[in-house]
Design a protein around this nucleic acid. Structure first.
Lengths: 232, 232
DNA sequence: AATTCATATATTGTCATACAAGTATTCATG
DNA sequence: CATGAATACTTGTATGACAATATATGAATT
């Protein structure tokens, strides 16, 4: 057997805890993170705190300008749109390729099973984590380290959005679950084009709901299919 | 008018120069960059050098494990495939969307013009830069900051590949130029599916050529630099 | 002779401290 | 009320130091 151990440095540990707390919606958008504050909070030296902050900034979970204090980003409608559009660019193509191989990852099936359980239990907040896992496991099924890494950075931004809207902006869990099932079915049947269209709609709906939740006006693409197939 | 100014810190300046030198193929794969070396090279303090190195590591242009010296990555066939596959995932979908809007960016047209000039001048190495620019400008045309950022990180890895193979692995410049023209034509005509297929072939050809070029180098698991690998 | 073990050196991780430089804020002035 | 100067706060960089870990070297053991 091949056990894996991680020896995390102090910088990494601080950065990781910052991530966790940011995901947990502990701080509203705009909250400042002074190097000195972080240093005293974790009882580390300021250079250590600085390094941790800069790591998190590099991931986009905090923002900072030169000589300015790092802050929790206030994600506006443009950010939400950009995040979800980028998700769509990456994810539709990945799903096409999965469909071409008719490769249905078991982890995705399992994740949607958990969503179904949350639906039955009528507990909408509990679908967030398995929903992320559903999409991530589809990406990971390709086996491309770089694709997975990129998608991971998007997922972390999505979590930041979720943290900021605090449960507002959630969609009908039943609908989500059913569409996931349909996505898996289309992959199984090799329907690349159909799965791309469906995912696009799936993400567009979530996107426009989130845009609304952060104070933007819903776009026109919420009900009309954004992808127009141009015939040859 | 809206001028933009950048005030780069010393850390950023050092990191940028490291990037430039890495792109310039100044160091073969496996070259070590100790913090002390970098510090004395640029006449800065070690923490400053450390921060610069870690920035570059975060971008994937250097690799380093805990307590280990940062090194120029030795990109093996798997890395090259992964980089180019990820490129394809992102770029084919972006081109689909451009085609749907029949949006042909002028910057891409201009870049391919420069490639054509290099072809006429019979100077294959001069097509590398405009080729990158051609593809990047297509991505940027979407106007998605996150998509552009992601693609940028891939481009920097591609440049690292180019640096390592030192001109080996180049394709016929005329073919590249013609295919670029065809891509632009298909976008103009809204042929989303066709442009996706063509780009896939375009990238696959470059990919396999590069894989070939790095295939002769020492194996992916060889962490000792020179001639450990005799004929198998 | 080959392998293992122990020592020495090199390198990184973290810290404390210090000062310069840039930001933000306050307050006085016109 | 707007402008500008003085102030406090924060970040950028540097120096030096020590601990922890990794790599290399050489000795001891089987």
């Amino acid at each position: 057997m091949n056990r894996r151990v991680v020896a995390t440095s102090i910088v990494d540990a601080v950065a990781e805890d910052l991530r966790v707390r940011l995901y947990a919606a502990e701080f509203p958008g705009g909250t400042a993170f002074t190097e000195a504050e972080v240093a005293s909070t974790y009882e580390v030296a300021r250079p250590t705190a600085k390094a941790a902050i800069e790591k998190v900034v590099a991931e986009g979970l905090l923002v900072r300008g030169a000589h300015k204090t790092a802050r929790v980003p206030e994600l506006g409608p443009e950010d939400v749109r950009d995040i979800y559009l980028t998700r769509a660019y990456l994810e539709t193509e990945v799903l096409r390729r999965l469909a071409e191989n008719r490769a249905v990852p078991e982890t995705a099936v399992q994740a949607n099973r958990e969503i179904a359980q949350a639906v039955n239990a009528n507990d909408p907040m509990r679908i967030v984590e398995p929903d992320m896992r559903f999409h991530t496991s589809l990406i990971d099924a390709l086996g491309s380290a770089r694709t997975s890494r990129m998608y991971g950075s998007l997922v972390s931004e999505v979590r930041m959005c979720m943290a900021q809207v605090q449960g507002r902006g959630l969609l009908d869990p039943k609908l989500i679950c059913d569409e996931h099932d349909e996505i898996l079915r289309l992959i199984q049947q090799g329907e690349a084009d159909s799965v791309a269209v469906l995912l696009d709609e799936h993400l567009a709906r979530a996107r426009e709901r989130l845009v609304e939740a952060v104070g933007g006006t819903p776009g026109p693409e919420a009900d009309t299919p954004p992808r127009v197939r141009a015939g040859g």
